[in-house]
Design a protein around this nucleic acid. Sequence first.
DNA 1: ATCAACTTTGTTCGATCGACCGAAAATCTA
DNA 2: TAGATTTTCGGTCGATCGAACAAAGTTGAT
Lengths: 220, 220
Amino acid sequence: MAGTPITDSNEPAPGRTRRYRSSEVVRDALVNAAISEFAAHGFNGASTRRMAEAAGTYQSQIKYHFNTKDELWRRCLDRLLAELDATIAEATDHSRNDPLALVDAAIRGLVRFAAKRPQLSRIMMHEATSPSDRLTWLVEEHSSQRQALLTRAWSELRKSGAVAPIDSGALYHTLIGAASLLYANAPEAQLMGVDPSDPELVERHADALVAIFLSAPTTR
Amino acid sequence: MAGTPITDSNEPAPGRTRRYRSSEVVRDALVNAAISEFAAHGFNGASTRRMAEAAGTYQSQIKYHFNTKDELWRRCLDRLLAELDATIAEATDHSRNDPLALVDAAIRGLVRFAAKRPQLSRIMMHEATSPSDRLTWLVEEHSSQRQALLTRAWSELRKSGAVAPIDSGALYHTLIGAASLLYANAPEAQLMGVDPSDPELVERHADALVAIFLSAPTTR
DNA sequence: ATCAACTTTGTTCGATCGACCGAAAATCTA
DNA sequence: TAGATTTTCGGTCGATCGAACAAAGTTGAT
């Protein structure tokens, strides 16, 4: 079976340069190219031939390394979600005990990730507009746990009244939407005179989200 | 030219039933079918044959009535955005003078429209992920004015301090994202056990957005 | 009733899609 | 070095796409 056990040292036989890239490298290049292609055009609109070209290889390599377009798509999401988890984990590293500080850090991490890797938001927005096996897989494999985690943390904070009164059913999509649409729709924002790649804008955006989500309700 | 001047009374010649539908009716059916198709699969993934079948007609009718898939797409957005304008205008009808009440009503109208017509959000999210002539048209024709309107109203309210401190560059997408992702991604929400078609959820969602956007900043 | 305008219907075209196959080339193992 | 394994590379297959065309059928005005 191809690539399952990476046995070799992947060294180009001392002194010589490899002519064939290792499975790992090609798979990596294909996943990266596919992430951009899926994000830009959705699953159906994405072309495996364009992916292969961007990765500097051949379309038939997708069958060889991933078997189908569908499985390649799943590997793309595995990678993106692992990156998201890593970013959030890093951001919340120093606030393990204070629940409010933890959510604060998580929101900022979410915004920064959406800015750095808008492809994840784009793919999810493409996919979640109509039912499919992929969407079912995505929710079961990934979305559900994240939503449960957020909802639990939020209802805990709600008890102490330190947080905005947001319906628990709407919370997840409200926060994700507020945090990521600006970057998912960056090409539109650019045309409107906004530059979502500006790091200072990202920080101001994160500040704003923390301010509106993590503030006790005010009576007018 | 077909259908430009609707001269006739469109009456089925007393007693008899028409065998041909009028241009107006077919165009209407095609636009409706196309809106759903574009929303579900994006521009490239949408099939003109499926649209025609859903509209009870033939694919070649699209060429006849709209010339190209591209022009049909533009007519879909003209209609959706007209509907959005009508909904917002109706919602803000009774608060012409009080700027704060006006934005309050506009936010609620936006949420209700996103819930009622998720297709607009879906199409925009599909389209805004990568540059295209359609996106340029969309921004120039529609998005820009709306953003300018919102930004102006917001900065006015900011002066009186009655409103959350949100960066003006990020405001538009933050609000739209918070208001519409839940409905744009309704199939995902359903799988997660949330029902975005529940009118009470929609109202609670609108309440929450008004609460977090239209509240003076609190210091912690 | 006639005729021009409008609408429907069926078909064809070239292009692109994902999946698949097999032989050649390179690499690793023994 | 010989043989087994991995990777590359070019090509083919049926399906579907948007666009286009040409008749044929329907309608309303004259």
